[in-house]
Design a protein around this nucleic acid. Structure first.
Lengths: 274, 274
DNA sequence: TGATGTTTTATCGCTATGAGATAATTCTTA
DNA sequence: TAAGAATTATCTCATAGCGATAAAACATCA
């Protein structure tokens, strides 16, 4: 048997057994959908525009798939292609999905008037956040005229463990569930003030549970202080949090608590449906 | 031949010729992607939650497809399913796409500091919008402490023809292109003040071209006034618009122009890359 | 309470669809 | 202007996903 003959052009796709596997596991999964989202999320601050081959390498797809999905997303209007440079970029149409979410959210509906009121009363930045696994997502936001942080926008994600809203939400979970979230997190200090050790975090969660609110001082951004309270759904589960964010330069830690704790707790309570 | 025998179970899918047709027309289109988006956009203010069969009827898909796509989107985390009621709702993860867009947009990057400055200077609501066909989309937004309109949020769409940013953008297009947008629009009056007739709109566009800014007084919402200027890209095409929105009760039409026209024009010019 | 209709979930066979290869074309750059 | 790289167009084949339907769970009403 000659070893040198060219092997028959193996028309193999992915790893056949493995594909078979996932297929068996979940016959209802439409994989193309995941790929489409994979392409869209390849874009971001680092990659404002991408060429076809970059899309392929960023997403780990072959050039043909990249071609098919960029074409599809372009047709659907989520991707624009520059005729000159042949590079792709996201379009404003990508805002549609989030728009539908905000418009369909009972939580946002309920919370909005209270958040507005809190914004006017305090003249500080007010946020509504929800939890997605080990992260919080900013869902609604009223900016203060004082500090305009454009790094945080709607859709921004931050770790649960080093944010006041995150801890506030965990504080209304059974402790083992809360610690499971902590344990699933990639714990690390963002600043010198970040509380990131397991034991310290458990203590922080307990304290938040006792007080009804949580605080975070310069844990992610220097000079940012935040105080948050959990919003509970009709069965008492924490479904969101309100927080007030202020600049450390304008208030001491004690002042943040004394001025804002009861306001934020009252707002969270008003939005809750328990 | 008996006519009463049950016809052989016709295993036909869609209309075969037609499917063949579209397939021929666009071999690169991955139709599953469109269907996934169709499911997601079935949700909204009217449909905060949907059951499986509602998804099917809302999207015009059969129950099997609805099942497959809700399952897929649930797995990917864009849809949540209530274990009790078996109803679906959008999750905050749908904000991810829009987040990626905003983060990847050079336009937003460039505009942000100027918008912030304009917001502080005027203390009024400032918007950044882009055009998508016959609509404008709100991309960035700084709310005034005076009027807090929560109907308009990031991702909101409005017709080009009855908004100041829309007319401002058209005013920097060749007139035939501008009128093509008008002609593609579903022209109708939203309020008694809406300018919606073809000729009046052409006149309005010409005036905006001459002045460098466009205005709209109570054309969509009663008591809302708006003044906008176009942002041009490096080849002089209008790629966006800035506008200042105020309450009619606080300023006369003349005051809106005299106080804000040069500010909004200057801001738009600073953001332009011509 | 059982009977009946409705909705959801699970499963299956078939084939149009989309994967992957590659050829043709266009764009770079040296 | 030739070589190389990237993009676009086109083809074939295997299977992913479509559509049907059966089974199960729920709801409704006599």
């Amino acid at each position: 048997m000659s070893m040198s003959e060219t092997p028959p052009r193996s028309r193999r796709r992915a790893a056949p057994e493995e594909a078979q596997q996932t297929r068996k596991e979940d016959a209802l999964m439409v994989n193309s959908v995941e790929k489409a989202f994979r392409v869209l999320s390849a874009f971001g601050r680092q990659h404002q525009t991408l060429s076809l081959s970059q899309v392929a390498s960023e997403t780990g797809m072959d050039i043909s798939s990249a071609q098919r999905f960029t074409h599809t997303l372009n047709k659907l209007g989520y991707l624009r292609k520059d005729a000159q440079t042949k590079r792709f970029e996201l379009t404003a149409r990508t805002l549609d999905l989030g728009y539908h979410f905000v418009r369909s959210s009972r939580l946002v509906d309920r919370a909005m008037p209270y958040l507005m009121h809190l914004s006017k009363e305090t003249e500080e930045t007010i946020n509504l956040t929800v939890r997605d696994g080990t992260e919080i997502i900013f869902v609604s936001r009223f900016l203060s005229r004082n500090v305009l942080n454009t790094d945080v926008i709607i859709g921004t994600r931050m770790p649960v463990y080093c944010t006041a809203p995150g801890i506030a939400m965990l504080s209304r979970l059974p402790e083992d569930e809360a610690m499971a979230v902590i344990d699933a997190s990639d714990l690390k200090p963002y600043t010198a003030s970040t509380v990131w050790q397991r034991d310290a975090l458990r203590e922080k969660i307990r304290q938040a549970a006792a007080q009804g609110y949580a605080t975070a001082f310069e844990e992610v951004y220097l000079s940012d202080a935040s105080i948050a309270a959990p919003i509970l759904d009709h069965r008492g589960q924490p479904e969101a949090a309100v927080n007030i964010a202020v600049s450390c330069s304008r208030y001491s830690r004690e002042e943040v608590v004394s001025r804002f704790s009861s306001l934020v707790v009252a707002t969270a309570h008003a939005v809750s449906r328990i």
